[in-house]
Design a protein around this nucleic acid. Structure first.
Lengths: 148, 148
DNA sequence: ATCCCTGCAAAGCCTTTGCAATGCA
DNA sequence: TGCATTGCAAAGGCTTTGCAGGGAT
C-alpha cells in the first residue's frame, strides 16, 4: 500500500470520499515538500488532471487539514502554504528569497502556556521564524554598504 | 512626554512624518491591546477623525511594523491583527470565540534553529497556539454529548 | 518649497460560495 | 440510489494601488 493509498484510506475512514482529484492532490503534496500554496498545488495537479477546478483543490486542502493530514502554514505572506504532515517542526522563512525551511524544535520547550493558561485545549501550535537566509543576508549587507 | 509622543519621536527619527492621523492610530493601538485588525483600528480611529481613510490606516500600520513598533500577527484567520510591541510573547487563540491572549514564553527555549541553521539572521519569531479556551472547550464538549 | 502623506475609489488577489451535473460508496 | 464532490463562474473580503491635493519639515 503506497503512501497515497494510506492517506486515502484515512480519508475514507473519516467518512470522506476518495476521488481521483483527491488522489492527485495528495500525490502532489507527497512529491512537493516545498510548502506549496493552493495555487501551486492547483497548477501541479492540473498537469495530471487538466480539468481540475481550483475549488476542488481548496476543498480537498481544507479536508486534509481538518483531519490533520496536512498542515496549513501562515507565514505572514499573502497566501497560505500547505505541508503534508511530517511531525512537529517550526518554519524558517527568508524574507528576501521566500525560501521556506523546516526546522525541528522541542515541543516540550513550548509547554509553558499550558501552565499559564489552565484549561486551554491546544489543538495546534505554529512557530515561524522570519529573517534572512545566509545567502540573502550577505547580499543585503553588501547592498547596504554600496548605498552608503 | 507621553507614550504616543515617544512613538512619534521614533517615527520622526526614522525619517517618517508625524501626522495627526498617525498620532490617532498610535493612540488607538495604545488603548486597545486586544489585537485589533486593520479594520478595527480604522473604525476606532474614525471616532476621533471621521474623515480618515482606510489607506492611511494600512499605510501607517505598515510603517509602524517596519520600524518594529507594532507587530503584525497572523493567526491563520482571514485578517491580520496588530499589536503594539510589548516584549516577546506568544499568542493563544480560541478557535471558537476568537479571543486572543498573550502568553509569555522563554525565547531561549526557541533558540534551537539558530544552531541548526547557522547564518540565518532571525528578524522575528512568532509562536501561535490555536485551540479552545476553557469556556469554549466545555461548551463544545457539551454539544458533542448532546448530539450523540 | 519639498515631497511625503492623505483621502477616495478602483483594482488586485486569494479564497469562498452557489448550483447543476457527476460519480463514489 | 443517495448524497458528497466536482467544475465553472461569480461573489466576497481584505489589502494594495493610482492620483491629485494638502500638510509636515
Amino acid at each position: 500500500m503506497t503512501f497515497v493509498d494510506d492517506l486515502c484510506a484515512q480519508l475514507r475512514a473519516r467518512g470522506r470520499r476518495v476521488t481521483p482529484q483527491r488522489r492527485a492532490i495528495i500525490q502532489v503534496l507527497q512529491e512537493d515538500h516545498s510548502h506549496p500554496t493552493a495555487e501551486q498545488v492547483f497548477a501541479r495537479a492540473r498537469r495530471v488532471m487538466p480539468d481540475m477546478s481550483r475549488a476542488t483543490v481548496y476543498n480537498a486542502l481544507h479536508e486534509l487539514v481538518e483531519i490533520g493530514m496536512v498542515r496549513e502554514v501562515d507565514l505572514g505572506l499573502r497566501e497560505r502554504h500547505y505541508d503534508i504532515t511530517t511531525g512537529e517542526h517550526a518554519h524558517l522563512i527568508c524574507l528576501e528569497c521566500g525560501h521556506i525551511e523546516d526546522v525541528p524544535y522541542d515541543p516540550d520547550a513550548l509547554a509553558l502556556p499550558r501552565e499559564r493558561v489552565p484549561g486551554f485545549e491546544v489543538v495546534d501550535c505554529s512557530v515561524v521564524f522570519r529573517g534572512y537566509c545566509p545567502a540573502c543576508a550577505s547580499r543585503v549587507e553588501n547592498q547596504d554598504r554600496a548605498s552608503e
